[in-house]
Structures are given as structure tokens and as C-alpha cells.
Design a protein around this nucleic acid. Structure first.
Length: 441
RNA sequence: CGGGGCAUGGCGCAGUCUGGUAGCGCACCUGGUUUGGGACCAGGGGGUCGCAAGUUCGAAUCUUGCUGCCCCGACCA
């Protein structure tokens, strides 16, 4: 992509409404624009990152045996009246009426809808398990939206639902998501720790929040250092195998958010040198809720003994749009964002230090073509901005690599490569640069 | 929803106390000199001063009402 053909309105100064670092950087990098409190337009750069995140989530959901579908944003109120949540949800739910004065709502989540779908679609225990997910916009009319897209009212979320015949089967579905989450966040360059969460109406041990460690995180978290260093299951993990062993490796060690933290327990269970106190951001939540909705909504099926039983269900959320901000919180410096390669909007930023200079233009065009042909996503700054501004902008938007080309270097047959994260630069020939950059991607 | 604050050009701000018809920096446009980490000179465009009433000869400025946004708290992916 040539920058001259792109839309990336970067700002030199930070709009005053932005307090936290990810919000500031997202506005400065031209990733989002606030439309009203808690609602954002996603400009090309931000949209691109969100899509990369979404794709990783999708791949790991698929790998875990969940099947993608899509439910609507607008739902009829009747479904929610059936489950009893229409009244319970309160003002957080955005209620709308259509032209016929029928009560509708902008969905804050989809348990009722998926239950209703399964009520129709599952006729026998033989049809189970059913494991579905979708990635869809949600709306929760937060009392106080803040921190940019971190706590917006409209947000993109992956929510998955498992439907099983009994609790033991439901547990297997739960662990699939547990392991999928470990892998998903790892792939985004994040260190996410599962932490025991309020276990909903059913109780028990099947509810976890996944918290990303970031110095500027919103809440304090406490855990065993072993969790921070623990290996993540590889992409060859057998989802059809018993995953409980993997999960218990994690759940058997101390990890708690601020609210659930028990200092005495922490001290008793974790040797002092392994006690980690950090800041974190919740990016995912998985929980088993049993028959809460299936029972109230009459979603039942006959089991192998011929008894009619309510569906055993769980739901599993990941805040996709929130992750864009979460990753920035976990990965930035004074100069700007530092994207992990897997979610970077482009792999490489090609900087033409003297647009308009024939030799430099030709060299850049050639490099740009070679990179594109090799499938390396490149943002080519071909504008006639001054060199200093290009450097600042490129650092701000945080692409993993910069390829810097100017007349001075070209005279010596050289270009420069800069690694955004380490700041290391290397001078080498254009061919060597291409080899190196295409090998990395 | 309680407490606090803000609203003046795309962004950041001054001007408001003490009313006299709007200014600065950045960004933008033109010309020139520049050009390897946010250049310089000259010229230029852009604002119903959040909205509505009121006071006044005259309101960004004073009064009243409204709206929007931000921050702290309670709540949440």
C-alpha cells in the first residue's frame, strides 16, 4: 500500500479526551475516531489490526472444533422475556422499537438466541455436542464508557457457545475453549493468564477470566511466576483428547484479580520469589452456565435413557475490539506502538527519504514491488513529507520493520533496516534487505 | 447514578474575572530556500466562539435553561 493512496490521519498532538496510552496512540495513529461516547469509527489502520486479531481468533476457534455462524445485532425482546433477562438486564440494554412498535434490542450477548436456535436444531442427544461461535458487534450501554475502545459501548466480540448432553461433556467443551484461549492470546504476542472468576449461577470451577499482563493494565493481578513462564500448547494439541491435564496445570496455581485476591492464600501457596504482582486487562471470559437458559426457555432433548433433559451450555467470550487496545497497552514505548508481527497492520514500512529524487524513487518502487510480490505487506511512504516526519510517523504506527531508503545510502549501494521493537538498525544492500525481510515473513 | 471539570478553525490552547465584533502554535494552500529523526522565510484560506432564550446600543465574555464530552467513584468483555 502506498501511503499516498491510504487514509491514515496521524496527529502530532494528543486529543485531550484521551487518558490512557492505548487510547492516545490509537487516536494519534489515526486508527479510530470517536463518534460519540463509547462508539468509534474504525479507520483503515485500526480496522486492519482488528481484522488480524479476528482472524487469529477464528483460526483457533476452528481448530478447537467450534463452527462459525452469524447472529444478528438486533434481537426481538421476546427471547429475552422468555429467559427473564429482559427485566434483569436493566439500563445496560439498548432497547429499540421498530415501526410496528415491536420491542427490539441491540444485543449485548446471544445466549437466548443461541438457545432458541438449538431448541429448533437439536432433536436428539445424538446431535450433540454442538459448538458454535460468531464474531459480531455488541452493544452495552455502559454507565460510563471510558479508555477509548477498551471500554466502549459498542464493541466487537467473539462469543462461542457449547451445547452438551450432560455436565461431563460440557466440561470437555469448556476445556477446549480454555486451551484455545491460551493459544489465541499467545499468537497475538500477549501473556494471558487464566484466573478463577465468579462462577455464575452454577458454581464450581468452570469460570475463568483471561487477563493480559500489561504495565498500564486497569486492575491489579496476582499470580505464581510459573504461570507467566508456562509453555503454551502447540498447534498440534489434540482437542479430542482429554484436555483436563493441560487445564489443571494452569488452574492448580495461584492466580487472582484484584477482587478475588486473598493475600494469605497467596503467601501460603506461592513461595515468595515466585509471587508476581502485576497489572492486567481482562480480554476473555469463559464459563459454564449449565441449564440456566435452556431450562427457562424449554430447550430440552431426550438422552439415551429416553429422559427429557435441558441442554447443558457454556459461553466463551473474547473482546476483539478491546484486544486492539489491550495489545497496545502491552506493547508500546515513548515513540508509539510496537505491533507484534502477527497483528501488525503491515509487515514493513518502506520509507522513501527523498520522494521526487529519481534514483531514490526507482529504488523504492523496485523494493516495494519485490516485497509485495513476495507477499510481504508493505506500507510504502512515498509522500513528499520530510524525513523526520516520516520517521516519527512510522515509529508511531509501530510496524515491526522499517526499510529506510535515501539517496545518501543508495550512492554507497546501501539501504537500512530498522527493527521497531529493539530499535536496532542494520545497513545492507537492497538485495540483502529483501532477502532478510522476505525470510522473516 | 453521585462528585468534579471542559466546550473558541482539523488538533492543542489563549481571550471570559473587568462586554466593544476573535487570536496563538501545529496542521493545510501558494512561492522560495531547504532536505537522513517532526526545517526556515514570505504570502494565504478556514471559526454561526456547543445550542436556545434573556440583559445590553453592543455578548465568546453577564444571566437562565438545555445538550455534548472528559475525569474520579460504583459497574462491566
Amino acid at each position: 500500500m502506498k501511503l499516498s493512496n491510504y487514509f491514515m490521519p496521524t496527529l502530532r498532538e494528543t486529543p485531550k479526551e484521551a487518558e490512557i496510552v492505548s487510547h492516545r496512540l490509537m487516536l494519534r495513529a489515526g486508527m479510530v475516531r470517536q463518534e460519540t461516547s463509547g462508539i468509534y469509527s474504525w479507520l483503515p489502520l485500526g480496522f486492519s489490526v482488528m481484522k488480524k486479531i479476528e482472524q487469529i481468533v477464528r483460526e483457533e476457534q476452528n481448530r478447537a472444533g467450534f463452527v462459525e455462524m452469524l447472529m444478528p445485532t438486533i434481537q426481538p425482546a421476546d427471547l429475552w422475556k422468555a429467559s427473564g433477562r429482559y427485566d434483569d438486564y436493566g439500563k445496560e440494554m439498548l432497547r429499540i422499537s421498530d415501526r410496528h412498535d415491536r420491542e427490539m434490542l441491540y444485543g449485548p450477548t446471544n445466549e437466548e438466541m443461541i438457545t432458541d436456535i438449538c431448541k429448533m436444531g437439536i432433536r436428539s442427544y445424538r446431535d450433540m455436542p454442538v459448538r458454535l461461535y460468531h464474531v459480531q458487534w455488541k452493544f452495552r450501554d455502559e454507565v460510563r464508557p471510558r479508555f477509548g475502545v477498551m471500554r466502549g459501548r459498542e464493541f466487537l466480540m467473539k462469543d462461542a457457545y457449547s451445547i452438551d448432553i450432560d455436565k461431563e461433556e460440557a466440561r470437555k467443551s469448556y476445556y477446549r475453549q480454555f486451551v484455545a484461549y491460551l493459544r489465541t492470546f499467545e499468537r497475538m504476542g500477549l501473556k494471558a493468564i487464566p484466573m478463577a472468576a465468579d462462577s455464575g449461577p452454577i458454581g464450581g470451577d468452570m469460570s475463568h477470566e483471561f487477563v493480559v499482563l500489561a504495565d498500564t493494565g486497569e486492575s491489579a493481578v496476582f499470580c505464581d511466576r510459573e504461570l507467566v513462564d508456562m509453555a503454551i500448547p502447540g498447534n498440534d494439541v489434540g482437542y479430542d483428547d482429554d484436555l483436563e491435564k493441560i487445564a489443571s496445570e494452569w488452574t492448580s496455581r495461584y492466580a487472582a484479580t484484584d477482587e478475588k485476591h486473598d493475600e494469605e492464600k497467596f503467601a501460603a501457596e506461592v513461595p515468595e520469589e515466585r509471587r508476581v504482582t502485576a497489572r492486567g486487562i481482562e480480554v476473555g471470559h469463559i464459563f459454564y452456565f449449565g441449564t440456566k437458559y435452556s431450562a427457562s426457555m424449554g430447550a430440552t432433548v431426550q438422552n439415551s435413557s429416553g429422559e427429557s433433559v435441558a441442554l447443558e451450555m457454556g459461553s466463551y467470550g473474547i473482546g476483539v475490539s478491546r484486544l486492539v487496545a489491550g495489545i497496545i497497552e502491552a506493547s508500546h514505548d515513548e515513540a508509539g506502538i510496537i505491533w507484534p508481527a502477527s497483528v501488525a497492520p503491515f509487515d514493513i514500512g518502506l520509507i522513501n527519504l527523498k520522494a521526487g529524487d529519481q534514483e531514490t524513487d526507482e529504488a523504492c518502487n523496485s523494493l516495494y514491488q519485490q516485497l509485495e510480490n513476495a507477499g510481504v505487506e508493505t506500507l510504502y511512504d512515498d509522500t513528499d513529507e520530510r524525513a523526520g516526519g516520516k520517521f516519527k510517523n512510522m515509529d508511531l504506527i509501530g510496524l515491526p520493520w522499517q526499510l529506510i531508503v535515501g539517496p545518501r545510502g543508495l550512492k554507497a549501494g546501501e539501504v537500512e533496516i530498522k527493527n521497531r521493537a529493539s530499535g536496532e538498525r542494520e545497513t545492507l544492500s537492497p538485495d540483502a534487505a529483501i532477502n532478510m525481510l522476505t525470510a522473516k515473513n
